[in-house]
């Protein structure tokens, strides 16, 4: 069981670093970065919303990469890694939807708008990855489940660009007049705040990924030990 210690090694330090960076990112985005001329205070959620969205993509990508490794090399451990990455991605995807809704409320006075391609794409992806969990929970544990989940995870990364394209095209007939939403002109401090926030959220996601992975693996180890004792 020496492996259990190697899984945890460095994790407390990383978690502390992530917490510190999140604090710094919040400080920078709410107090240091200057207020946006056009959107006022509501623009500040940008420093949280966008890094969370990027992190969700990152997690989905990681999940697909691990899925590819599973199919390619046939190593069973990649199944759990792929699942945990997608689990984290779905959590961050939900957070993206929530922060996006808050932003929409502040900017346009509505909780939901089909005008934001980003939000529509995340809704599609959120549904897609919820179906991923349905698939996993409906199949009996074993190689078939690992492989089907991996294939579905790979479909996910192919779906992201295709859906993005489709949603862009759909703007034409669904709502010809769109809000103009040019990206805010970022000043130096704004850019720093954004970058720190991005690093902080990514690190947080990585720590959560590691923690969940350790928990799941310990659970399996424990089960095997219990069986060995029987």
């Amino acid at each position: 069981m020496s492996s259990a210690f190697s899984w945890i090694r460095g994790l407390p330090a990383l978690a502390t670093l992530a917490a510190g960076l999140i604090g710094l990112a919040l400080l920078l985005s709410f107090f240091i970065a200057p207020e946006d001329g056009n959107q006022g205070i509501s623009q500040r959620i940008f420093y949280i919303h966008v890094p969370i969205a990027l992190t969700a993509y990152f997690c989905f990508g990681l999940g697909a990469w691990k899925a590819l490794l599973l199919l390619w090399r046939g190593e069973e451990r990649h199944d759990l890694e792929s699942y945990v990455a997608i689990h984290q991605g779905t959590i961050f995807g939900l957070l993206t939807l929530i922060t996006g809704a808050i932003w929409a409320k502040a900017s346009w006075g509505v909780w939901w708008t089909w005008d934001s391609n980003q939000l529509v794409l995340f809704l599609t992806l959120f549904l897609f990855y919820c179906a991923y969990f349905m698939l996993r929970f409906s199949l009996p544990e074993g190689p078939r489940r690992s492989r089907s989940s991996a294939v579905y995870a790979l479909f996910g990364v192919a779906l992201i660009p295709v859906s993005f394209l489709a949603i862009r095209l759909a703007e034409d007939f669904i709502h010809p007049t769109t809000f103009t939403r040019d990206g805010p002109q970022m000043t130096g401090t704004m850019f720093t705040a954004f970058c720190v926030s991005w690093v902080a959220v990514t690190l947080l996601a990585y720590v959560l990924y590691r923690v969940e992975l350790v928990g799941k693996r310990l659970h399996t180890d424990l089960r095997e030990l219990r069986e060995a004792l029987e």
């Binding site: 698939l135 779906l159 489709a166 095209l169």
Partner: peptide, 18 residues
């Protein structure tokens, strides 16, 4: 399970078809 798996994947098809 099938509709849940397939509907998110068919959104681009609906956009293209419509």
């Amino acid at each position: 399970l099938l509709p849940l798996l397939l509907l998110p994947l068919s959104i681009p098809l609906i956009v293209g078809g419509v």
